[in-house]
Design a protein around this nucleic acid. Structure first.
Lengths: 152, 152
DNA sequence: CAAAATTAAATTGTGTACAATTAAAGTTTT
DNA sequence: AAAACTTTAATTGTACACAATTTAATTTTG
């Protein structure tokens, strides 16, 4: 019985998904040393980005923005709360909803984060143009991924 | 005291890293229903891709190929072993090294995996050209990420 | 208005990621 | 050859991800 060689389309190096997976983890790795002095992990940083942009959001809104569910966000937000960066409070007129707000320390942290994007852009040695194009292609891919092909 | 608006470069939508992170998880989500019938998670599928390409690799080689360390791989490989898809055996002439080999069931699974790439490509509605270009850009980004700027 | 359905978070359980440490095996140095 | 160093996995501990279930609150329906 002859052993067939792997067909091309199953080669690891052919996979767009692996390129994405590897690139994503690799870039996250570049953030780590920049975020560590701020006491943030990368997903926590993303939550802070949302809050710096719009303070006082619900867990649900955060989840929609970051594409994460409460199973991920609830413990993450508890850690940010424990770190004194956010407050978590149930909305008085709808007790189901939890509102997340920046504390003064959380707002102040934005100053420390200010240099991070430039620092990373420089590290990547990509032109602003290249970065924007790649970013927009990825956003389109994500959008397309989440648009069901057939809706009923 | 006036509250400054978030500078552009800290806006979530500006971040290449978030676009990557979101796209990666989003694509992985497309794989999930295809891999679930095979009893594989996405990282496990990546390990199988490597093994289908080259059977009998060490944990170290797997780690280099997938950019994962033994902390991730050891438990993952134990699960693949428990599923009867791979064997783990220390090399007799160097007991530090653990060799991973496909079982007949592991090799046979390749047939089931055969349609996955095409299935995904179709779902993404990207031309082969577009996919290749994006993939190669991401590979370059990863390569650059891992090349230290200054070496000593 | 009470029962049924819906919504929002939290919880539970499994499986990665990854830093840091440990343990064991092998290699190099003195 | 013994000590020092290096290499390879495994282990430990923390923090995501995400499916599935649960809980509590609100809304819709009969």
């Amino acid at each position: 019985m002859k052993r067939m060689p792997t067909p091309d389309h199953l080669l690891l190096d052919q996979q767009l998904c692996f390129a994405l997976y590897a690139a994503s983890r690799s870039i996250t790795g570049l953030y780590r040393p920049l975020l560590e002095p701020m006491g943030l992990t990368y997903p926590q940083y993303l939550v802070m980005l949302v809050l710096w942009e719009q303070d006082d959001v619900t867990v649900r809104e955060l989840g929609q923005r970051l594409q994460l569910d409460s199973g991920t966000l609830t413990p993450l937000l508890k850690r940010l709360q424990a770190a004194g960066l956010v407050s978590r409070q149930r909305r008085s007129d709808d007790e189901r909803v939890v509102e997340i707000r920046l504390t003064p320390a959380g707002l102040a942290l934005r100053e420390q984060a200010n240099d991070i994007p430039a620092c990373l852009a420089q590290r990547l040695e990509l032109s602003l143009d290249q970065m924007q194009r790649l970013r927009d292609e990825l956003k389109q891919l994500t959008r397309h991924t989440q648009t069901p092909t057939i809706e009923d």
